[in-house]
Design a protein around this nucleic acid. Structure first.
Lengths: 285, 285
DNA sequence: TTGCTCCTCACGTCACGTGAGGTGGC
DNA sequence: TTGCTCCTCACGTCACGTGAGGTGGC
């Protein structure tokens, strides 16, 4: 019989660890002195402790190990738990690989620019309604004109002003500066509104925008000169192995104030999916 | 200005998260109403929040991010922190890869044996003194005879019986059953003892055993029939990519009781080093 | 009055490490 | 008496999630 100190030196675990395993019902001392509360262990308990440590090395949690050591568990169940755990580790492995790529991209950026820039953040955005007008614009100027018209008419849109955030949705996948297929209007969460007739006879209608699971986003201040954001998004997508997966959006966070457009804050959003490539890391045999 | 709820929906983070970042001094609201304590944020704060989220995605801790966002930090320091983080992730990646191999080995074992067996545990053992006798044994029987002789003489070794744990150290790297180069004696932690003269004229002397950083260990009950342990250790080493790195040891946990040898508990210890192989996972370019 | 949003604690997470404060045998 | 070992709390870790209990404006 060994005291907890002796036993911990033999097994090379800490006394605290032994007490912790005991508290979890995982590993009990062979005897506890009722007088002093001292714990005593025997050498014959070492195999069980070793099994616990070996399973812990595989990354199983202590409650999982407790279930695994349960006498009533079948080999089939054991295999199931290990297979599940393996899948988990493979998943985190893939994530770590991506993380390394992202860090490398950032290091490269710092070396090239001398500082951190262009913070692209991946988010998931929910479905929203879109009161909008779709049009192919011959030029940027035509776009601004349409925007101005909508905004002149805006106070009459609803009693309480704009129903949500002003946004642009670009359907073409090419980033040309003419013949842009754009949908312009207001994104909002409430139930659908009636269609709206503009003075020139065109009609803004409501349809739902789909939720997007993986949206690469970037914040830009002002309503012009945001081409560099698309450049940065493109580089980010390439370095992080994503590709374009749908129409991009430009969402204005706050109601636009026509006299202070240079202070407008816009979020550029691009739906992305992971580029399929072989993961050399997962070739483990 | 947005309330915390509005801002959290815009930025797609939780209000709790915003309060948490504030508590860490990482991200403050632009204004706090002194009356109500309500927090208010502006759209212009989104770039900073995005930077925080982007750096968090790289796996940096919030205090690290705080330092990175500090105005007085140079590009060189930023690069240093990112490079350090990259090395960390690469390390955990290697560990995850090993873990997958270990889990696969365990799954294979369960499939072959129908249950968990042979718990090999990797430990580090400290340096200890060894009062011992080295000899090349022609046969196993000769070994048992030597052991018996030492034990007959044992009561006279010290006043208080054996000075430590009885142990065998095998210098030959081959596992033959004859001409075994073995060192036999007692491992202990106290300061060195005097040499001991055995009745047949041979002398047991003290020398330190080196500490071993990576020791593959296994528990065996009894003093014979432990060949299967060496088989299991060999398989374990192969599957987990380790190789033999020094003389193996057999350490008896408790004082040997000659009439109950079948209940003796022995730890088999084998020093190992990692087998060098290319890690395909680290080919990231 | 009922919802809704906001506020400030404060517990829980996972596997222990690390004191703090106290006790019993050499 | 001084060390040594043991005991039982209980805090801290990391980045929040999740109530609990209370308040102010529509």
């Amino acid at each position: 019989m060994f005291s907890i100190g002796e036993f911990s030196r033999i097994a090379r675990v800490s006394p605290r660890q032994l007490r912790h395993y005991e508290a979890l019902g995982l590993f009990q001392p062979e005897r506890i002195d009722p007088e002093t509360g001292y714990r005593f262990y025997s050498a014959l308990q070492l195999p069980r402790l070793n099994r616990i440590l070996a399973l812990k090395d595989l990354g199983l949690t202590l409650p999982q190990i407790r279930r695994l050591l349960d006498a009533n568990i079948s080999a089939e169940e054991i295999r199931g738990m290990l297979t599940m755990r393996k899948a988990q580790v493979e998943q985190t492995l893939r994530e770590e690989l991506e993380r390394i790529r992202s860090i490398e991209a950032r290091i490269f950026q710092v070396e090239a620019q001398g500082s951190l820039t262009d913070d692209v953040v991946l988010k998931s955005v929910p479905s929203r309604n879109f009161l909008s007008l779709r049009q192919v614009l011959a030029s940027k100027e035509q776009g601004f004109a349409l925007m101005a018209q909508i905004f002149r008419f805006l106070p009459r849109l609803t009693r309480r002003g704009a129903p949500g955030q002003f946004a642009l949705l670009f359907s073409g996948e090419s980033f040309e500066t003419e013949n842009i297929d754009v949908e312009m209007g207001f994104m909002f969460d409430e139930e659908a509104l009636e269609p709206v007739l503009l003075p020139d006879g065109r009609v803004m209608t409501v349809h739902p925008l789909p939720a997007v699971e993986h949206m690469a986003t970037m914040i830009h201040i002002g309503i012009t000169h945001h081409e560099s954001c698309y450049g940065a998004l493109g580089i980010w997508m390439e370095q992080n192995q994503y590709q374009l997966a749908g129409p991009g959006r430009e969402v204005f966070i706050e109601p636009l104030q026509p006299d202070r457009l240079e202070e407008a804050v816009m979020e550029i959003q691009i739906p992305v999916t992971r580029t399929n490539r072989d993961h050399p890391a997962l070739i483990t045999e």
